[in-house]
């Protein structure tokens, strides 16, 4: 095969391969190591405190989730109010 490539004048471009592999693994690792995830527990706690000034809610009533949709970060908030308040 080496001989064949020699006569074709064609060479495998390993630099291109390196770049493609790096782009995939780095995108993956950046998503995992993103520092923005670190503030989520604190945000959750503070939201809980603010809401409790007005409504008494359970400790696990606030759920915060950060997702990635293509190039956009999506912050999802899910707050469960107790039944009585919801009826009023």
């Amino acid at each position: 095969m080496g001989l064949l490539n020699f006569f074709r004048g064609k060479k495998e471009n390993t630099a291109k391969l390196a770049k493609e592999r790096l782009q995939i693994i780095i995108a993956h690792e950046r998503a995992q190591n993103r520092p923005s995830h670190e503030f989520l527990p604190k945000l959750e706690k503070e939201l809980l405190d603010v809401i409790r000034r007005y409504v008494q809610i359970a400790d696990d009533a606030v759920k915060v989730k950060l997702d990635r949709d293509g190039d956009v970060d999506v912050l999802e908030l899910n707050i469960v109010l107790p039944d009585q308040v919801a009826k009023e």
Binding site: K11, A15, K16, K19
Partner: peptide, 16 residues
Amino acid sequence: RAEIGEMMSIEDMMEI
């Protein structure tokens, strides 16, 4: 080596 595709170029590295 970059010229013959054996090594990533500076442009490649900056892009990544």
